[in-house]
Amino acid sequence: MATAKFKVWRGDTDSSGFVDYETDVSEGMVVLDAVHQIQAEQANDLAVRWNCKAGKCGSCSAEVNGHPKLMCMTRLDDLPLDKPVTIEPMRAFPLVKDLVTDVSWNYQVKKKIKKFSPRPPDFEDGTWEMQQEDIDRVQEFRKCIECFLCQDVCHVLRDHHLHDNFVGPRHYVYTASLEMHPLDTEDRLGDLKETDGIGYCNITKCCTKVCPEHITITDNAIIPLKERVVDQFYDPLKKLFRIFKPKE
C-alpha cells in the first residue's frame, strides 16, 4: 500500500501552523478519508467538521494545496502525491481549531437580507401560477449547499476583510434567487448598493471556479444584479424612462 505525506494545519487562534503526517493511501480515497485516518491513527484531537461525505452538506470545506475545496469531493488520485498535500482551514473566517472555522458570520448576514415576499395569490385556494422557464433561472441558485468556499476565495473577504461592507458571493446568489423569482415583489437593489456592497465585487470569477455545485455565480447572479443596480442608480436614460412611464 502506498503512503502519502500531508501537512495539516493544527492549532487555534493563539498558536497554529502546519504539522507533518504520513499515512497509507489506497485507490478511491478522498482527502477527508486521509484526514480521518490521520485522526484515528496519529492525532485523535484533530478537529475537522464533516457530515455527509457526499458533497451535499457543505461541512468539510477547507483549502487543499491552496485551493478552496470540499475535502470529501477531492480525490487523492487527482493530487500530486510526490509532494506533501497541504490541508488548511478556510482563510476568510476566524479559526476555531485545526481545520474548523467559525462561519457564523454568514448566517448573521443572511438574516439581514429581505425575505421572500410573494405577490398576492393568483387563485382563491392561495396558490400561484408560474411557468417552469421562469423558475429555471433561479433554480440554479437553489443548488447552493452553503459550503462558503466562494466566500473563502473572494479576495474582498479573504484579503481585505471587508465583512462589514460586503456580503460576499454566497449572499449575492441568495439575493439573486429572491430578486429574480417570478413571484417576488420585494426591492433589494438599494441594499445591494449600500449595505451589501455589490460594488466591491471586481468580477474575478474565483467564486465561480470553486463552487462545487457549479453555479455560475458571477455571470448568472452577480453581474445581473450589478446590471439591475445600474438600472436603478447609474443609468440616466432608465431614470428618465421611469419618470415618463405611465403608472400601472
Binding site: H67, H160, G199, K209
Partner: peptide, 30 residues
Amino acid sequence: YYRGAYYKAFWADPPSCAVGEPRKGYRGES
C-alpha cells in the same frame, strides 16, 4: 470579462484566486 482579467493581470487585485495581494486598501467598483 476584461475587467476581471485586467484587475488580476495589471493590478494584482488579486494576482490570482487565493493568492495574497500587494495592497491593504480596497474600494473596488464602489
